[in-house]
Design a protein around this nucleic acid. Structure first.
Length: 266
DNA sequence: CCTAAGTCCTGAGTGC
DNA sequence: TGCACTCAGGACTTAG
């Protein structure tokens, strides 16, 4: 899926489309996402007040229930009257526009929040990586608990820190100079501090570039992201490291394809 | 046949 | 032994 930078880019685009708009009615064209889409009749007539992000989830606040949405691997939002394959939810606005959530692989989520604004899916999530609550102490504590698991798997654990997925985990480990497969418990505190800095840095840079387009991710306005052109290691197996010239290596760590430089990362 | 941006569940293993 | 947790692997799904 879209990781934090892609979700944040979609959030900004959706906010432009939806903030201040009023829903005439909302309808599910097919309900079979990761969980069944609930009855959306309660969205008729609501105003959309804000579009927020928590972790990789989007939250559409309304004058009625908030909408909780996850893009899964292939979830997309767009504006347009044309019905396409894998359109799941359409929001018909009072001004006549049709805003659609489409998800080919159906790993996404589209639900309504409780009356108190919460949702079970948001429970137990770790701190936002770009917020003050994420610091070296967070990773040091996590590394003690997850001491035998691979460092890369640890930073992708959404209970440890949110928003880091398979692409940015490899990129952050490269920037920090740490091998992604190293057992977390064997990485010293100073190196974990450095990893915090690099996670924040790579995510912030990627947001500034509109995210990374691999396959079918698009911004709400249909444009591709640009950060894929700046990858140091992801998807570059066999190519030369831009820092030292060594061949980038690939292996499966925690079930996910992972990339690193054998010389720059120890 | 292979691979893919995510998450959830299972069952085996670990440690108090 | 019991319990709570960690950790690896597979499942879900469609497209290229």
């Amino acid at each position: 899926m879209p990781e934090l930078p892609e979700v944040e880019t979609v959030r900004a685009g959706l906010e432009l489309l939806l903030a201040g708009a009023r829903v005439r009615h909302a309808r599910a064209l097919r309900k079979d996402l990761r969980t069944a889409i609930p009855d959306l009749a309660g969205l008729a007539g609501v105003g959309i007040t804000a579009v927020r992000r928590r972790a990789k989830y989007l939250l559409l606040d309304t004058t009625g229930p908030s909408i909780l949405n996850h893009l899964g691997m292939t979830g997309k939002w767009r504006e347009g009257a044309e019905v396409r394959a894998h359109d799941h939810v359409e929001l018909h606005l009072l001004d006549g526009r049709r805003i659609v959530f489409n998800d080919a692989r159906r790993f996404g989520l589209f639900e309504l929040c409780r009356a108190d604004g919460g949702h079970d899916a948001l429970d137990g999530l770790g701190p936002e990586p770009l917020g003050d609550a994420f610091d070296g102490r967070v990773l040091r504590a996590a590394a003690r608990r997850h001491r035998r698991s691979a460092l890369k798997a640890m930073i992708m654990d959404q209970r440890v820190v949110v928003g880091v997925g398979n692409i940015y985990a490899s990129e952050a480990c490269f920037r920090a100079g740490i091998r992604p497969g190293l057992a977390a418990g064997r990485v010293g505190g100073a190196r974990l501090d450095r990893l915090v800095t690099e996670i924040r840095g790579v995510l912030a840079e990627a947001i500034a570039k509109g995210g990374s387009t691999i396959g079918d991710y698009r911004q709400v306005n249909g444009l591709s992201g640009l950060f894929q052109n700046q990858f140091s290691v992801y998807g570059r197996e066999g190519e030369a490291c831009r820092a030292c010239g060594s061949r980038i290596r690939q292996s499966v760590i925690g079930g996910r394809s992972s990339f690193w430089c054998p010389r720059c990362q120890r």
